[in-house]
Design a binder for these strands. Structure first.
Lengths: 105, 105
DNA sequence: AATTTGCGCAACTCAAAAGTTGCATATATA
DNA sequence: TATATATGCAACTTTTGAGTTGCGCAAATT
């Protein structure tokens, strides 16, 4: 079952995992040590993140280092782009308002 | 109960609502007509979006027009910023690799 | 070879969230 | 004033997801 990237990021623990491995690739055990929950719980989060390709595994003996996949994270950025114009417009309108107020002085 | 913006955006219906009203403010009934679900179901999504301030109500008689709150959406952008450097680095490294390959010709 | 360690998978429990139906309230319209 | 319409709230059912426990497998260690 393919996971949805928005769904993957909705969970705070998964966001924390992403923040961690964006700095340095980690094994499931190493991640679990950072959180107050069982290794298996973390492992399930890893599965979700892996299924939507936000992280990539790198096998090293019996250890698996999970890397952050920045490219996938950009999908978010692309979705957000449809609103970016919207908020820039809003600020431009604010600028205009402030300018108008200043001119009235 | 305050809602989490990440949780709010995780739902596909809520994302569709946001996309709709980013273009034009709509009433709950108008939104419900766009989706194949009851008005009350849409209304619950509106409640979630409203609680995390992604949308703003504007009363007009007995109708309520919900507007998109671009400013709140920027919180996403700020969260994403921590990874932006990450993927730019990745592309810079790719650039460097390509440059190196070209120099070897 | 036996044991330990790192990991994933499956079954289970429990809590939260999505959707439905029914009802109350306020504003329009006849 | 009586009726229709727009909306929100509460109770309920069903689905989904987070977390735990138990197990099996493969690689490292002794």
């Amino acid at each position: 079952m393919k996971q949805d990237i928005f769904q993957a990021i909705a969970d705070p623990t998964r966001r924390a995992i992403l923040t961690l491995i964006a700095i340095q690739a980690l094994t499931p055990n190493a991640m679990a040590e950072k959180f107050d929950m069982s290794r298996q719980a973390v492992s399930k989060h890893i599965k979700v993140l892996h299924e939507c390709e936000l992280i990539k595994p790198e096998q090293s003996g019996r250890e698996i280092y999970y890397h952050f996949n920045a490219k996938k994270m950009q999908e978010f950025d692309h979705w957000l782009a449809q609103f970016r114009q919207n908020w820039e417009t809003q600020f431009n309108q604010l600028d205009h308002l402030l300018t108008t107020i200043n001119e009235q002085k």
